[in-house]
């Protein structure tokens, strides 16, 4: 199906400064599950961006907005054609050994409680095990936008038994690692007809099996991705897969707001 996406990231700085720098992972890949029909990024300085494909295959634009600035608007939009593969992505970007995605980060390091849950989910096949993990995490961790924040780790969210899609994905990755299954973080978009703002800018996990390759698991919703899902970027965890990662020099604070609108069709 066709999904149209408008993704806007706005920064407001408390005082103007030079040399803002942002690494954008804002270009969705064409892969087994999706074809990019149209896509564009608007951002001050994008015409001079350094562009490359990172180790995991994400297209990155490194932008430096010109001059002194007290704010920044980054907009990505386009139309993606998706097809329903029950979450199976296959072997994208074959050069990366899947075993690399066994490495824990500060966000996905296991806790004894996560390890215990993982061990209870062991089944005869890796695929069955992953589905057991999916249901178990979905049932155990309640969706709650107030319980966690951007820096919460898998262990902390699992202790609270609450969190948002980012936390569900981190817990899923940590649990898969406990069982020796490579797992990675995906950011992307989710189309839900009707009221959807919270989920439009979405994240989930992907785990590796030898026969099917990478498969998506959305523990926040308890399902594998369908044609309502569009993939944007992958990484070890939320920070490494972040669509926008930036830094500013010197002291000061910033306000960040992200607005994502996902609609069916190509409007």
């Amino acid at each position: 199906m066709l999904i149209s996406i408008h993704h806007r990231t706005s920064y407001r700085y408390d005082r103007p400064f030079n040399h803002a720098i942002q690494a954008l992972r804002l270009t969705p890949p064409t892969d087994e599950s999706q074809i990019i029909r149209s896509w564009s990024i608007t951002c001050p300085g994008i015409e001079y961006a350094a562009e490359y494909q990172d180790a995991f295959g994400n297209v990155v634009h490194l932008v430096t907005p010109p001059g002194e600035t007290d704010g920044l608007e980054i907009e990505a939009s386009g139309v993606i054609e998706t097809n329903d593969r029950a979450g199976v992505i296959g072997s994208t970007h074959k050069i990366v050994p899947p075993a690399i995605f066994l490495r824990p980060t500060a966000k996905t390091i296991e806790s004894p409680a996560i390890a215990a849950l993982a061990l209870q989910c062991c089944r005869a096949t890796r695929l069955d095990t992953l589905h057991a993990l999916l249901s178990s995490i979905h049932e155990t961790v309640t969706y709650d936008t107030d319980a966690t924040h951007a820096l919460t780790t898998a262990a902390e969210a699992f202790r609270a038994k609450r969190g948002v899609c980012q936390d569900h994905a981190h817990i899923f990755i940590a649990a898969a690692h406990v069982l020796g299954i490579p797992a990675r973080y995906v950011t992307g978009y989710l189309l839900i007809e009707g009221d959807t703002a919270a989920f439009a800018h979405h994240a989930w996990a992907e785990a590796y099996t030898d026969d099917l390759g990478w498969i998506g698991f959305d523990a926040a919703n308890g399902v594998c991705p369908t044609n309502h899902y569009a993939r944007l970027a992958i990484g070890f965890d939320a920070p490494t897969a972040a669509p926008v990662r930036g830094t500013m020099r010197g002291a000061g604070s910033e306000d960040l707001s992200v607005e994502v609108v996902v609609r069916a069709g190509d409007q």
């Binding site: 720098i21 690494a23 350094a50 562009e51 490359y52 990172d54 990155v60 490194l62 430096t64 830094t247 020099r249």
Partner: peptide
């Protein structure tokens, strides 16, 4: 900041 991205590019 950004040095590694420039390198990869």
């Amino acid at each position: 900041p950004g040095l590694f991205d420039l390198y990869r590019a």
